[in-house]
């Protein structure tokens, strides 16, 4: 291969692909070379294998195991493409572009971390918790998770491996506190930083919450994608701009994101 060519599509071998809850699947696949490059917050563009659905599906990295050489992803069957992924069996091969996108930056000066996951936005919080724990052994990691009901709750136990506490809220009160995830925050939080992934309405409120208290806040956002490498300009999000006449500009989620400083985003 030409030395300037540093990236290529890869194939992963499915080791496990099991139903977790509801329509949510937990898949582990082997890709020893590519896991080395992966960082918390990045995502994979996964091809469905069905030739009528050509575009890859962006799925966050939930966990990487450098020793085993495996990626773990957790995805909800949201439509036809993810339904194809749900059919994969151990031994099947999976075509993937990535890892792509920006990572969650972790500042070693911080001690108190708040990780906030909303529904199917929870998976990237796991690799982030792992990263923080490795980088800052004395960190105090609080995880706040919001789901519709107890039947949707995922990764609570996995997160306990790295977090000091995991607090769950459900919309219907069937588990944990009834209400949204921000309701579960302590009245007088001492967070040095907040990280989050979840529905955009949740990210918006969280961003407001963080800004009012002057807490740095990083969020992972979603947009429909085609190329996943920054070339097609499909996946843009509005970002504040000092130089632009309208005060905002479009940035590519697949390249400048998916992780953004919430202060930069122009919330709808």
């Amino acid at each position: 291969m030409d030395e300037r060519i540093t990236k290529e599509i890869f194939y992963g071998e499915v080791l496990e692909n099991k139903l977790l809850v509801g329509e949510v699947y937990d898949m582990t696949f082997k890709a020893p070379k590519e896991v080395q490059k992966a960082r918390a917050g990045q995502f994979l563009a996964i091809y469905t294998g069905n030739p009528s659905m050509l575009l890859p599906r962006p799925i966050s990295i939930c966990e990487v195991d450098i020793v085993q050489g495996t990626f773990r992803v957790i995805y909800r069957v949201a439509g036809h493409g993810t339904a194809e992924l749900a059919k994969l069996k151990p031994g099947d091969s999976l075509r993937v572009l990535g890892p792509v996108g920006t990572a969650f930056k972790v500042d070693s000066k911080h001690t108190n971390f708040a990780l906030v996951g909303g529904g199917i936005g929870t998976p990237p919080m796991l690799q982030l918790a792992k990263k923080i724990r490795n980088q800052i052994p004395h960190a105090y990691i609080s995880v706040y998770l919001g789901f519709r009901s107890k039947f949707q709750v995922i990764l609570e136990n996995d997160l306990m491996r790295y977090a000091n506490e995991v607090v769950v809220a459900t919309d219907d009160g069937t588990m944990g506190i009834k209400g949204n995830v921000i309701d579960t925050f302590p009245p007088d939080p001492n967070f040095d930083v907040i990280y989050s992934c979840g529905p955009s309405i949740m990210l918006k409120f969280l961003s407001q919450y963080a800004q009012e208290r002057d807490i740095p806040c990083y969020v992972s956002v979603e947009e429909y994608m085609a190329c996943s490498v920054g070339a097609c300009l499909a996946c843009v999000v509005k970002v504040k701009s000092k130089t632009d006449d309208d005060g905002w500009d479009y940035k590519r989620v697949c390249m400048t994101g998916p992780v953004f400083n919430s202060k930069e985003l122009e919330w709808k």
């Binding site: 493409g81 947009e223 429909y224 300009l233 996946c235």
Partner: peptide, 22 residues
Amino acid sequence: KGSQTPRIAETYGGMVHSIGLQ
């Protein structure tokens, strides 16, 4: 600046797009 999002929609063997020439 181009179009608002969503800018793409997949379809059998293709995609409908309006990037708006950003």
